[in-house]
């Protein structure tokens, strides 16, 4: 029990600091997507710890449900919501950050001190006996005997949550949806006729056709309407000027 270098100890001492660093990083990075990636990493390490502790079933569920489903959901919503000023790390409520840090230090310190003080009063048992028939079978036996009623209640909760999410996300259209014809008429009647044929696509032809590069106009200036407003707000725009061919050297002959 007090061996220093069991495989589990090695695993722990390598992964635990990494997960803590990732968790801290979650707080400190600016972009929500990066936070999500870091969180996914923390969850994966936790899944490994579950498996290392003999909770095979939970470890797999952790990967499938959390890193698989839940984090994907987060990323979907990030995509829907986009980015705005909320990503700024500047604190707007006076003194809140200091309260949070002080409380965190006190909370963490006390927690660790309390765990250090607490004992179960007996040596730990391990799951060898409990997992004798296999971890999944053991959990299944418990789930369908002692915990069958909570299990059923949880299923009701899931359905309710699904319905609730649908109700919340449902969007009743209040105005008339413009038909293609109406859209075409509106495009010609309003604004400049310059946009009538559609906005320019992004990318510098033959050099860089990614969505984050504005197109170049014939006079060599970038076309601001050619990229999505979201990318501009995020600042994910590459300066297309560097792809401009300043001087076309007429001496260079086309090589065959």
């Amino acid at each position: 029990m007090l061996e220093i270098a069991t495989p589990e100890a090695v695993l722990f001492w390598v992964l635990a600091p990494l997960s803590v660093v990732a968790a801290l990083g979650m707080l400190l990075v600016k972009k929500a997507v990066h936070s999500a990636i870091l969180l996914a990493w923390v969850m994966v390490t936790l899944a490994i710890f579950y498996i290392a502790q003999g909770a095979l079933f939970l470890g797999i569920v952790q990967i499938v449900v959390y890193t698989g489903a839940v984090m994907m959901l987060f990323l979907f919503i990030l995509m829907l919501v986009g980015v705005d000023a909320s990503d700024s790390l500047v604190e707007t409520i006076k003194g809140l950050r200091w309260i949070a840090i002080t409380a965190a230090l006190g909370f963490g310190g006390l927690m660790i001190a309390l765990i250090g003080r607490a004992t179960l009063g007996r040596s730990y048992l391990g799951l060898d006996i409990a997992n004798e028939d296999g971890n999944v079978e053991g959990i299944a036996v418990l789930l369908f005997s002692n915990y069958v009623f909570p299990f059923e209640v949880i299923s009701a909760l899931l359905i309710t949550a699904a319905v609730g999410a649908m109700v919340l996300a449902h969007h009743q259209r209040t105005n008339h949806r413009p038909t293609q014809r109406e859209q075409a008429i509106a495009r010609f009647r309003t604004g400049s006729l310059g946009d009538a044929a559609g906005l320019p696509g992004p990318g510098v032809y033959a050099l860089h056709n990614a969505v984050d590069v504005p197109a170049l106009l014939p006079d060599g200036t970038p076309a601001p309407t050619s990229i999505s407003a979201t990318l501009k707000a995020r600042g994910d725009v590459i300066d297309s000027a560097k792809f401009q061919l300043d001087v076309v050297d007429p001496t260079i002959k086309e090589e065959k």
Binding site: L96, I99, A100, A103, A104, G106, F107, L110, M111, L114
Partner: peptide, 14 residues
């Protein structure tokens, strides 16, 4: 933050 401080107070009590 208030909840957090409250939890801290609880831990202190423990």
């Amino acid at each position: 933050a208030l909840i957090f401080v409250g939890a801290l107070a609880l831990l202190t009590a423990i």
